[in-house]
């Protein structure tokens, strides 16, 4: 448990990184740079009764399939469409590329 809750780790929130469109790995070739915003951080303090109960049931060996009993840090909304010019001189538009805000869900 202490391993999981190392100190200094940020709570779930929006982070950003500058990458080229090619680096997104979506199959588009473009040298254009984009700010990619993503969700990252701790959610273990956001556990609901559901998570506690599920963990107990799971550890009792009642369930066959694996389950998740800690909320996950995920985007709640996405930024508007992002458009760019590809290396082939064609324009492309990507939807829901970047996170706008995050939450433990």
């Amino acid at each position: 448990r202490t391993k999981r809750e190392r100190k200094g780790r940020k709570l779930c929130g929006l982070q950003e990184v500058e990458v080229s469109v090619t680096q997104l790995g979506l199959g588009y070739e473009s040298e254009e740079t984009v700010v990619f915003r993503y969700c990252s951080g701790r959610c273990s303090k956001r556990r609901r009764t559901y998570d506690l109960a599920l963990e107990s049931i799971q550890s009792a060996g009642v369930l066959k399939e694996p389950t998740r009993h800690v909320p996950c840090c995920r985007p709640l909304h996405y930024e508007e469409d992002f458009s760019f010019l590809g290396n082939n001189n064609k324009y492309y538009t990507i939807q829901e590329l970047s996170a706008q805000d995050c939450g433990c869900v």
Binding site: R4, C12, V35, S40, R42, S44, P66, R68
Partner: peptide
């Protein structure tokens, strides 16, 4: 030194294919 990528805890299905961008999340 902000944060390293934080993969969802306790997730048996968690995929470890996320490549961290070391040190580059600090642009702001």
């Amino acid at each position: 030194n902000l944060s390293k990528n934080y993969i969802c805890e306790m997730d048996p299905n968690a995929e470890t294919s996320i490549v961290p961008w070391e040190g580059r999340s600090s642009s702001s």
